[in-house]
Every structure is written in C-alpha cells, then in structure tokens.
Design a protein around this nucleic acid. Structure first.
Lengths: 245, 245
DNA sequence: GAGCATAAATTGTCTGACATTTGACTGCAA
DNA sequence: TTGCAGTCAAATGTCAGACAATTTATGCTC
C-alpha cells in the first residue's frame, strides 16, 4: 500500500535535523556509520532521493562524509579546525557583505578581538611565529606588490600574531574576524606612504611581541586600528565627493 | 544522444561550489532568483535530482532559500546575524566536543574574548542591558535552580555583557565562544557555595559596568575565569580519583 | 469591474533503473 | 597453506520520467 499523498513539507530538512540532533546529542559518535540510504529511506518512510538530499545538507556542514564501495556509507565526521575555519570564513564574509556592516564596525570588532590576544601572544609566541611576521613585513615592503597581495600578506601577518597565543580555539574564533575583513580591506587603495606607515606599525608590533611587551603590542595595534579607520574614512570621503549619488 | 557514462565525481558538490562562488563573488546578488531546477540541470548537463542535491547543500548554509509555486524558485538569501549565530554555535559546539579541546583551553579563549569587550561595554552599555544582567543574577540566586538552568542563565548574563559593546560583529563572533562552552560548563556541579561566589562576581561585573569602570570589569572577569578554572580542576580531580582510568 | 475557476510554472516527492566504486569472497595454482 | 586473480555484492552516484502540492497569473463569467 502506497501513500503518494503524504505530507510534503520539506521532509529532507526534517530528516537532516533528526540526524543532526543525534550527532550533537552524542547518540551518534565520531566515525560511526549511518544506516545505508536504502535503510534510512525505509526507517523514515521516504524515498532515497529525499534521504540523499538530507545527507547532502549534513555533508555541507561537514557533519558527515560519504564513501563509496562495499564498506562505504555515510560516517559521522570529526569536524577539524580546518573545516570550521573555512565554514566560518564563508559565513562571516557573506554576513559582512550582505548586511551593510560598516567598515568602522567590522574594523573595531577585528582589532578589539586581536588586542585580546596580545597578552597571551606576548607570553607564548614562538620564534617561528616571529619569523613569519618578519617575512610578511618584508614582503609588504616590496614596491611592486599589488594591493590584493598586500592585503593577503597583511592577513598572514595577523594570523601569525593570533596563532602566537597558542590557543587553537582562539585562533579559530579570530580566523573569521580577520579573514572576513579582507574584502572590505581590498576596497582601500594603499599608497606608498600608507604602506610605509602600516609596515612601520607592523614592525613595532613584532618588536614588542619579541620583547614580550604586551602593552606595546596593544598600543601598536590600537595605533594601527586608528590609522586603518582613517584610511578608510578618506577613501569613502573621496568616493562621496566623486559620486554624490 | 545520451551520455550515461559521464564522469561520476560528486557532481552535486561541484555544482554547489560553482553557485556558491557566484554568490560570494557577487555575480549573484541578494534576492536574485536562480534559474529553475530544470534550467540548471540543462545548463550543467546533469539530472534534476543532482541539481537538487546541490541546492540543498547551499540551503544548509543558508545561502539560498526556496519557494514553491509559479513565481517560486531558489533565491539568494541575505544571511542574517541569527542564521550565522546558530550555524556558528553548532559548529563550535561540535568542534569542542569532538576534538578533545581541554576545558582549560576553551575557558581561556572565552574569557580572553570576553575581556576584550569590557572597554567597549563599559562605554556603551545601555540601561536595558544592565537590567537584564541584574535579572539573571537574581535568577541565579534562586536556591531551587537546576544546574542546567543556572548555566543557561549564566550564558544569558554574559551575552548581555557582550551585547553591551554595541557591535553586532563582536556579538556574533562571541556568541560561538560563549555558547559553545555551555556543554562543557554543564559538566560542573555547582554547589551552593560556588554559586554564591559566581553570583558575587557577576554582581561585581555589573556594578563596574554600570559605573563605566572598564578596569573593574576586566578584573572581575579575570577573577571569574580563575574561579571557573579552579572549579573545573576540582571536578576533574575528583573524577580521576573515582575512576583511575 | 469583481469574483471565481482554470491554467501554468515551479518545487517536492516517488519509483525504478543503471553506473561506479570498493571491499570481500572464492577458487585455482604454486 | 599461501598468493593471486577473477567475480560478486553492497553501497553510493546519477539518470529519467512521473505525479503531487503550491502559488501566481490569466481569462472567463456575471
């Protein structure tokens, strides 16, 4: 007996929620194999395509992975920091670009969070991280560097600073804040003069970090925030001047 | 002419990536309608179920929404802070529970980020937020409160503190850090004595915030972090004592 | 012109089939 | 017994076609 006229109301979303809750609650543990698609379609009394749509939703959140073949199937995925990074960056980037978040607000959030890392980084930074920062500073000083490349190097510099805190949870949380700012930063055209100012502040930050001077790092970060805000304000003022509407 | 033997290699993932990139790059703007599933299946030369799997992946990330009916279809979704919150909390919670992140590390990250908000909150907190915090403190002082309810109130208290900074980006970033801690916090059994100590510190925080004393807020938060870490250490010590392995 | 019935477009779901992949099994030979 | 090759089976990946449900637009009637 078939039931062709069931209750069409986003069944795949319901099934996805059901399985997701099982994973979050711990009823399904890491690396555990889910029933096969055929079994699931029987359990939930839906067709296999519907089950598959549900599984794809979960796969999009990195909650499961699938594997073909005889011993294949869907397995509960251990979410890696890398997975979480990239997801958060995607979400944060779109959130900023779609919601008319002002440069000012995003910039303030970013530097506020980054300053929070200063004490820990000053205490724990490794020689490798200092070296990375100095490498990026050198790269930033190359005159023929494009604005995009300059921004990318800037991100790498700040990530090294954050990673210096030696706390993966902190690094993860800040990855979104720092990287999501990049598209906004890319709107700024960096002149030779402004690059020099930024590089100078980057050097101050690195020096203070090497000297384990937390207050010095914070002060330089604050100066960098103020300078960045000023640059952005100039850009926007010019745009308004050129295009009143 | 059919091509039954194409190139089976996660077509739905490729299509999803294709559309996702178009959204991120701005080629598809908010509220723009995607082609119908039939059109997409023709464009990408795949079947409709495959297209649907791709769309469900995007829906799981809140990148699109779908609507049935004559003028229905898939539309680029404006990601709300609410959407971003819940996604980030899910990811952060699982990240912590699946990766053996120590209580110590997570707690340090959380309070580090929270302290970062202190200066801004001290400056901008509204009367409403102060009132919310005092309400939660009162709730926490009820003797018959369950541990879970106590933790939930704790989260609400700290969210009010963070929201006091008046920066939605900051609130969004910290939501993950604060809420993801809750399952870890729930492992702690709060005695009457420890609740009293926490409530006392919460009061100190609120008082300092009301007085716009940023240093006072930071100091109280640090004290709270130290006390929380001590509570957790005691719990773990007891467990090890009871269960040697 | 207003109201109602119908049509059309689109997503949601089902069914059945085939392709592909990959581990396991079986049987044979050394 | 061991090693190897071929076959098989289970599972996911994909396709095709169909029907159901929903929502809007259209046209017809009064």
């Amino acid at each position: 007996m078939k039931k062709p006229a069931q209750k069409p109301a986003d069944l795949s979303a319901k099934i996805a929620k059901n399985i997701r809750d099982a994973i979050i609650s711990g009823a399904l543990i890491v690396d555990e194999r889910l029933p096969s698609e055929a079994d699931l379609s029987e359990q939930f009394n839906v067709s296999r395509p519907t089950v598959r749509e549900a599984l794809k939703r979960l796969a999009a959140q990195s909650l499961i992975r699938t594997q073909r073949g005889a011993t294949g199937g869907a397995f509960v995925n251990r979410i890696s920091f890398q997975d979480a990074y990239s997801q958060q960056i995607t979400t944060s980037t779109l959130l900023l670009s779609m919601n008319d978040v002002s440069f000012e607000t995003a910039c303030e959030a970013r530097y506020t969070l980054e300053r929070a890392c200063a004490p820990l980084s000053a205490e724990r930074r490794t020689a490798d991280q200092i070296a990375t920062m100095r490498t990026e500073i050198f790269r930033q000083s190359q005159p023929n560097l494009s604005d995009e490349a300059f921004c990318a190097s800037d991100v790498a510099f700040h990530r090294a600073l954050v990673d210096g805190a030696g706390n993966p949870v902190l690094s993860y949380q800040l990855a979104g804040a720092v990287e999501a700012m990049q598209p906004l930063m890319n709107m700024i055209t960096f002149t030779t003069r402004s690059r020099a100012a930024i590089i100078d502040l980057h050097s101050k930050i690195t020096d203070a970090l090497e000297a384990q001077d937390a207050d010095g790092v914070e002060a330089a970060l604050t100066a960098l925030e103020i300078y960045t805000q000023k640059l952005a304000a100039d850009v926007f003022a010019k745009r308004v001047g050129r295009k009143p509407q």
